[in-house]
Protein backbone atom coordinates (compact mmCIF):
# COMPACT_ATOMS: atom_id res chain seq x y z
CA UNK A 1 0.00 0.00 0.00
CA UNK A 2 3.00 2.26 0.14
CA UNK A 3 2.73 5.22 -2.12
CA UNK A 4 -1.07 5.16 -2.47
CA UNK A 5 -2.27 8.72 -2.08
CA UNK A 6 -5.71 9.59 -0.79
CA UNK A 7 -7.22 13.10 -0.57
CA UNK A 8 -9.82 13.58 2.13
CA UNK A 9 -12.10 16.59 1.53
CA UNK A 10 -14.34 17.60 4.43
CA UNK A 11 -15.20 20.91 6.09
CA UNK A 12 -15.21 19.37 9.58
CA UNK A 13 -11.72 19.36 11.02
CA UNK A 14 -12.38 16.43 13.33
CA UNK A 15 -13.76 14.28 10.53
CA UNK A 16 -10.66 15.04 8.47
CA UNK A 17 -8.51 14.13 11.45
CA UNK A 18 -10.42 10.90 12.07
CA UNK A 19 -10.23 9.78 8.43
CA UNK A 20 -6.53 10.71 8.24
CA UNK A 21 -5.72 8.62 11.33
CA UNK A 22 -7.79 5.66 10.20
CA UNK A 23 -6.50 5.66 6.64
CA UNK A 24 -2.87 6.26 7.56
CA UNK A 25 -3.16 3.30 9.86
CA UNK A 26 -4.07 1.29 6.78
CA UNK A 27 -0.85 2.45 5.15
CA UNK A 28 -2.14 5.13 2.82
CA UNK A 29 -0.64 8.58 2.38
CA UNK A 30 -3.39 11.02 3.31
CA UNK A 31 -3.73 14.66 2.37
CA UNK A 32 -6.49 16.96 3.51
CA UNK A 33 -8.66 19.73 2.05
CA UNK A 34 -11.46 21.62 3.77
CA UNK A 35 -13.58 22.52 0.73
CA UNK A 36 -13.93 22.19 -3.04
CA UNK A 37 -11.51 24.97 -3.95
CA UNK A 38 -8.73 23.53 -1.81
CA UNK A 39 -9.39 20.09 -3.25
CA UNK A 40 -9.06 21.34 -6.83
CA UNK A 41 -5.81 23.14 -5.95
CA UNK A 42 -4.40 19.91 -4.48
CA UNK A 43 -5.49 17.84 -7.46
CA UNK A 44 -3.72 20.26 -9.80
CA UNK A 45 -0.37 19.62 -8.04
CA UNK A 46 -0.63 15.97 -7.05
CA UNK A 47 -2.02 12.80 -8.52
CA UNK A 48 -4.30 11.06 -6.03
CA UNK A 49 -5.33 7.44 -6.29
CA UNK A 50 -8.63 8.10 -4.55
CA UNK A 51 -10.47 11.21 -3.40
CA UNK A 52 -12.91 10.96 -0.48
CA UNK A 53 -15.30 13.88 -0.88
CA UNK A 54 -17.92 15.27 1.51
CA UNK A 55 -20.96 16.89 -0.15
CA UNK A 56 -22.08 19.76 2.05
CA UNK A 57 -19.25 22.22 2.40
CA UNK A 58 -19.03 26.02 2.42
CA UNK A 59 -17.32 27.75 -0.50
CA UNK A 60 -17.48 25.05 -3.11
CA UNK A 61 -19.53 21.96 -2.29
CA UNK A 62 -18.60 18.39 -3.08
CA UNK A 63 -20.82 17.98 -6.14
CA UNK A 64 -19.35 21.05 -7.84
CA UNK A 65 -15.81 20.05 -6.93
CA UNK A 66 -16.43 16.51 -8.17
CA UNK A 67 -17.68 17.82 -11.51
CA UNK A 68 -14.68 20.10 -11.93
CA UNK A 69 -12.20 17.41 -10.98
CA UNK A 70 -13.83 14.93 -13.37
CA UNK A 71 -13.60 17.55 -16.08
CA UNK A 72 -9.88 17.90 -15.41
CA UNK A 73 -9.08 14.21 -14.93
CA UNK A 74 -11.81 12.06 -16.35
CA UNK A 75 -10.65 8.80 -14.76
CA UNK A 76 -9.99 10.26 -11.27
CA UNK A 77 -11.75 7.96 -8.76
CA UNK A 78 -13.92 9.89 -6.33
CA UNK A 79 -15.89 8.48 -3.41
CA UNK A 80 -18.67 10.68 -2.13
CA UNK A 81 -18.89 10.41 1.61
CA UNK A 82 -21.87 12.18 3.16
CA UNK A 83 -24.21 11.97 6.09
CA UNK A 84 -27.13 11.63 3.65
CA UNK A 85 -27.95 8.01 3.14
CA UNK A 86 -31.07 8.48 1.12
CA UNK A 87 -29.51 9.12 -2.25
CA UNK A 88 -26.81 6.52 -2.19
CA UNK A 89 -28.26 4.72 -5.20
CA UNK A 90 -28.66 7.87 -7.24
CA UNK A 91 -25.12 8.98 -6.73
CA UNK A 92 -23.57 5.61 -7.40
CA UNK A 93 -25.19 5.52 -10.80
CA UNK A 94 -24.92 9.19 -11.50
CA UNK A 95 -21.57 10.90 -11.25
CA UNK A 96 -19.38 9.43 -8.57
CA UNK A 97 -17.54 6.15 -8.49
CA UNK A 98 -18.97 5.25 -5.11
CA UNK A 99 -21.05 6.61 -2.32
CA UNK A 100 -20.40 5.91 1.34
CA UNK A 101 -22.65 7.02 4.16
CA UNK A 102 -20.51 8.69 6.80
CA UNK A 103 -20.26 6.57 9.92
CA UNK A 104 -18.20 6.15 13.07
CA UNK A 105 -17.52 2.73 11.72
CA UNK A 106 -14.99 3.43 8.98
CA UNK A 107 -15.07 -0.17 7.78
CA UNK A 108 -17.31 0.51 4.78
CA UNK A 109 -15.16 3.43 3.64
CA UNK A 110 -11.97 1.36 3.87
CA UNK A 111 -13.58 -1.49 1.94
CA UNK A 112 -14.87 0.85 -0.78
CA UNK A 113 -11.36 2.30 -1.22
CA UNK A 114 -9.97 -1.19 -1.58
CA UNK A 115 -12.63 -2.07 -4.15
CA UNK A 116 -11.79 0.96 -6.24
CA UNK A 117 -8.05 0.28 -6.03
CA UNK A 118 -8.66 -3.39 -6.79
CA UNK A 119 -6.70 -4.59 -3.81
Amino acid sequence: MNGIKILVVDDEENIRFLFKEELEEEGYQVELASNGFEAIDKVKGTKFDVIVMDIKMPGMDGIQALNEIKNMIKEQPVILCSAYGEFKQDFSSWISDAYVVKSADTGELKQTIKNILNI
Partner: peptide, 17 residues
Protein backbone atom coordinates in the same frame (compact mmCIF):
# COMPACT_ATOMS: atom_id res chain seq x y z
CA UNK B 1 -29.89 15.12 10.83
CA UNK B 2 -26.85 16.01 8.78
CA UNK B 3 -25.62 18.52 11.34
CA UNK B 4 -25.99 16.02 14.16
CA UNK B 5 -24.41 13.22 12.28
CA UNK B 6 -20.99 14.76 11.74
CA UNK B 7 -20.11 15.21 15.43
CA UNK B 8 -21.54 11.79 16.11
CA UNK B 9 -19.20 10.21 13.56
CA UNK B 10 -16.31 12.02 15.23
CA UNK B 11 -17.27 10.84 18.71
CA UNK B 12 -17.79 7.27 17.62
CA UNK B 13 -14.71 7.20 15.40
CA UNK B 14 -12.31 8.42 18.05
CA UNK B 15 -13.86 6.23 20.73
CA UNK B 16 -12.97 3.27 18.55
CA UNK B 17 -9.49 4.60 18.03
Amino acid sequence: AHEIKNPLVVIGGFTKR
